[in-house]
């Protein structure tokens, strides 16, 4: 029982981080119908900037720089590349992000070389014991941060002009444009937000507590798990992203313990496959209706 509880706690902690990644993913998809394959490279980019600045300006300032850089990179990708090809369909633009991902990822991996550095936050690797359960501080902080951010996101999307514009555009692009919503601003803000979330997520991923590994190609592949999280929940559902993220965290924790570490990577993808066969648009996604 204690083991199971322990696994649930670990799963929730990881799930919170996946939820942040998946949320960014879904926000972009809702605004533009583009699936961003470059999400993993945004994660790496944010982490890399934390790494190179933290020894000079301290961890907290470095973390802020990392988060902002990931956000700005996402914004730059959108403004400089995707926005320039207005006629390209979402399918082609998704392919374009694959190209972007390859370039950014390879360059950062080259710079990292053989080192796999932790990005050394203040709370990493100092677990707390609580009634037979080990609580990793990284998980706790991640859970807290994710809860605050996700709550803020839902409040903003309901009550602010930005949120209303975002939802209107997701509902119907043309109608939103007709009532004066500036589609390019909404799109740019979606990318910026997704980048910021990726920059926050990496602070938790490249830690001893989360993956036992520092910044590396492995970080990129952990970020890949945001795919099943987003798809599982439904690509066009923000609630789905949260549920999907937590589900992926739990599946990861449970399958690592009960089967094997090697299997855990496949397990989250297999769960996604099963969900897709039963519900092709994910748990909370809207089904495409045929229009002719």
């Amino acid at each position: 029982m204690t083991t199971f509880l322990q696994l649930m706690v670990n799963g929730l902690g990881k799930g919170a981080v996946f939820a942040l990644l998946a949320l960014g993913f879904v926000v972009i998809y809702k605004a533009t119908e583009v699936v961003n394959f470059a999400h993993g490279s945004l994660v790496l980019f944010g982490g890399y900037l934390v790494l190179v600045t933290k020894d000079h300006i301290g961890w907290a300032a470095a973390a802020i720089i990392g988060i902002l850089s990931a956000g700005l990179l996402a914004l730059a990708v959108e403004r400089l590349l995707l926005a320039r090809s207005r006629h390209a369909d979402p399918f082609s633009l998704a392919l374009l992000t694959i190209g972007v991902d390859v370039i950014i990822t390879e360059e950062i991996i080259r710079r990292l070389g053989v080192s796999v550095p932790f990005i050394g936050d203040a709370w990493d690797a100092k677990p707390i014991q609580l009634g037979g359960i080990t609580l990793f501080r990284t998980h706790l902080v991640a859970l807290l941060v994710a809860t605050v951010l996700i709550t803020a996101f839902f409040l903003a999307s309901r009550y602010t002009n930005w949120g209303i514009a975002m939802r209107a555009q997701a509902e119907n692009r043309e109608a939103a444009a007709l009532v004066g919503i500036r589609s390019s601003r909404v799109t740019a803000s979606a990318w910026l937000l997704a980048g910021l979330l990726a920059g926050i997520a990496v602070l938790f991923i490249a830690t001893q507590d989360f993956s036992g590994a520092g910044l590396s190609r492995g970080t990129h592949s952990i970020a890949l798990a945001a795919f099943p999280a987003a798809i599982l929940g439904g690509l066009d559902s923000t609630v789905g992203a949260i549920v999907g993220g937590v589900a992926v965290g739990l599946v990861d924790a449970l399958s690592t313990y009960y089967v094997s570490f090697a299997f855990a990577k496949s397990a989250v993808f297999l769960v996604m496959l099963v969900v897709l066969v039963v519900r092709p648009a994910g748990l909370f996604g809207t089904r495409e209706t045929t229009r002719v």
Binding site: V35, F91, A94, F227, P228, S266, F269, P280, E288
Partner: peptide, 21 residues
């Protein structure tokens, strides 16, 4: 047969992980 376009791309990614395992 059920999953379309980009969804299919991501779904297919799971086979790579299955193969790895």
């Amino acid at each position: 047969g059920r999953v379309r376009g980009i969804y299919l791309g991501v779904a297919s990614l799971s086979l790579v992980f299955l193969g790895l395992y």
